[in-house]
Amino acid sequence: MTQFRLVVADRRSRFPVPSFGLRVLFDPDNLFTIWAWRLALAALVIGGWQAAAALRLVDPMFLASPVAVCGFLFDYVVSGKIWVNSLVTLEETVLGFALGAGLGILAGLVIGGSKFLERVLTPFLTIFNSLPRVALAPMFIIWFGIGALSKVVLAFSLVFFIVLISTEAGVRSIDPDLTMMAKVMGATDRQRFLKVVLHGAVPSIFAGLRLGAIYSLLGVVVGEMIAAKWGLGQQVMEYSYNYKPAGVFGVLAILALIAICLNELTTRIERHLGRWKTED
């Protein structure tokens, strides 16, 4: 009991803070304080970067200033190039993700549900999953051409194994008490699978999906960087070949934005489905 209270008391400040009114400045629970610090930090980094560029501390050939990046992004939007390339990248990412996630969940459920399959396949899965598949990207280009297919396949190969392994782990982590309960309550194998195993594996499956979405984007961009006609990855390559760092950083900013949106989207879907907790 005493220990529990100590931990609670300790939660507010993990390190000693001067007590003369400055406490609010370092209050980890004050949303305003936290946002003020975040903005200050961002301003410091971007300001320092701009200053370094303006004072010619860095050769503009290597590092574009934030102002130059903003200028590039403005032109990029106005010329419409942003939409063409983003759309290609997004399409490939979503397609690779959907295929990889769908088949990954299916395979994970089948393998997780069978001790035999699990034992036979585990070494192969470990090998495939630890293999850096992006290194296979050049081969995928040779096999599937420089069009969208090679990028989709690369994204698929990343997502599939991530989702498969997390699904399988989710199925295997089901408390045996629960499946035993379902069995003695008269649930059929099918009911046990749907009402207990699948349901219990949902959190783990979602962890895999969230990771998979980001890796799907990664796979597509790497594929585009090697050989493509369109896409944000191809744009990064084009601008760096032409010594246009503002273009490289601008496209990277767009990619970061897409990655954040993907992450936010999967988190929201998860939270929405999280309502499975409240009804039968």
């Binding site: 629960l178 009402k195 349901h199 219990g200 907790k277 039968d280």
Partner: peptide, 10 residues
């Protein structure tokens, strides 16, 4: 053996 994602009722 309670299913943690279900209410007591369910």
């Amino acid at each position: 053996g309670m299913l943690p994602w279900r209410t007591a009722q369910a």
